[in-house]
């Protein structure tokens, strides 16, 4: 479980996060949603310790991040997996080297074992036969999936995904969403997913935090999000044409 209390962060006088409190539960897919520029990525990077928050605390299973020595933080991070918005694959390594990287770094596995594990994960993200390609030789959507494979290959205890299915076709997006949820349930890990895709929210959003202009505007579950009267949320949800039509249909009593 990750608890975030009153998190604040400014860049050069402009406050991007204006005091956010949220809980991300173990064994669940926790979603952060909001329009682009609302501070989702900044929020996540503060949680990971990539940015130093101006105020507030981030508590991992009862352990505050800001009290940790750098060595302890490193240990904790070995149990984290992160899928970056733009993949952040190591561009000097092949696809399989990227996926095996955490195993190479942190386990005693020999090469054949690492390869077997990498191939197992790559097939789960529907990527076969690209092992020897460089990241620059595959599409953005494929890079995303390699990055997800790299994030989960070493069985993390905490999984963070920044827009895991942006740039993917609807089919693959669903596969990826479901894979993230499966892994979360299988291994009882704490998963935090940033998204602005309402399909994902419906499919796998077990807890939802809605950010607007750097503030927490709403929180709840994916059942509640379609029933709320919160104006900011309804505007966001029904800005998607499909859902808009669904709502009109509902109002007409279908």
């Amino acid at each position: 479980m990750i608890q975030v209390n009153d998190l604040r962060k400014s860049f050069g006088g402009e406050e991007v996060l204006k005091g956010i409190t949220a809980t991300f539960e173990k064994g669940k897919t926790n979603m952060i949603i909001g329009a682009s520029g609302s501070g989702k990525s900044v929020f996540l990077k503060n949680m990971l310790g990539l940015f130093e928050p101006d105020a507030g605390e981030i508590i991992y299973d009862g352990e505050p991040l800001h009290d940790m020595e750098i060595e302890r933080k490193s240990e904790l991070r070995k149990e984290m997996g992160m899928l970056f918005q733009h993949s952040a694959l190591f561009d000097s390594m092949t696809v399989e080297e990227n996926v095996m990287f955490p195993l190479r770094m942190f386990t005693k596995m020999k090469l054949p074992e690492r390869l077997a594990r990498a191939n197992e994960i790559l097939s789960r993200v529907n990527l076969i036969g690209l092992n020897k390609k460089m990241p620059s030789e595959i599409s953005g959507g494929q890079q995303k999936r390699v990055a997800l494979a790299r994030a989960v290959v070493n069985n993390p205890r905490f999984l963070f995904c920044d827009e895991p299915n942006s740039g993917l076709d609807p089919n693959t997006a669903t596969v990826i969403d479901q894979l993230i949820q499966e892994i979360t349930h299988e291994r009882k890990i704490t998963t935090v997913i940033i998204s602005h895709d309402m399909n994902s929210v419906m499919e796998i959003g077990e807890t939802i935090v809605f950010l607007k202009d750097g503030k927490l505007a709403w929180k709840g579950t994916n059942e509640e999000i379609f029933r709320t009267d919160n104006k900011a949320v309804t505007e966001f949800v029904y800005s998607s044409n499909l859902f808009h039509k669904v709502r009109i249909a509902q109002n007409k009593g279908f």
Partner: peptide, 10 residues
């Protein structure tokens, strides 16, 4: 963000 990726891995 490859440097961030390294850092997040510990």
């Amino acid at each position: 963000e490859q440097i961030d990726a390294l850092e997040v891995m510990g």
